[in-house]
């Protein structure tokens, strides 16, 4: 527990983060590829026609819910709290899908894989989507939506 932030999960967060980094390391050293979820998801569905072989992309995308399901089963559930209204999910989903394709990556590809490689594009992308995320939530709070 961190003083002042009783709801934070620093230990679980750090261990989970290590697992995520290990997963990305397996993709890099095993298959020579970036574990970027937006790119692999677009490739798996056929929306993108370049990138990883389709089977590789599909296997990764199937693995994601499988791993989460495993943790939920072993830990007796995973806490999730979704927005009450469906609109944040629909508007947010459209923007996340369009934006990650236009920007060539998301939190995994740019944030984890690119930043650890000190890629200039990924450092800029991560700084921008973080800043945009902070500003968006600040505006939502200002507007009384949170």
């Amino acid at each position: 527990m961190i003083p002042g932030f009783p709801h934070a999960m620093p230990i679980e967060g750090f261990i989970g983060g290590l697992l995520i980094g290990l997963a990305a390391a397996i993709m890099l050293l095993g298959l020579g590829r970036i574990a970027g979820v937006s790119g692999l998801a677009a490739r798996a569905t056929g929306i993108a026609d370049t990138g990883a072989p389709r089977g590789i992309a599909l296997a990764f995308v199937i693995g994601l819910p499988l791993g989460a399901f495993l943790i939920a089963t072993l830990a007796g559930g995973v806490t999730t709290k979704f927005p009450v209204s469906i609109w944040p999910l629909i508007i947010g989903g459209l923007l996340v899908g369009f934006g990650t394709r236009l920007g060539s990556g998301c939190t995994s590809g740019h944030g984890v894989c690119g930043m650890s490689r000190l890629s200039p594009r990924s450092l800029v992308a991560t700084a921008l989507f973080m800043a945009s995320g902070f500003a968006t939530v600040a505006l939502l709070r200002l507007g009384g939506f949170l």
Partner: peptide, 17 residues
């Protein structure tokens, strides 16, 4: 390899909150 990487990734996301 890809399936294992995806599953580990998903497990990490779920475990980390």
């Amino acid at each position: 390899v890809s399936l294992v990487s995806g599953a580990l990734f998903g497990a990490g996301l779920a475990f980390s909150g």
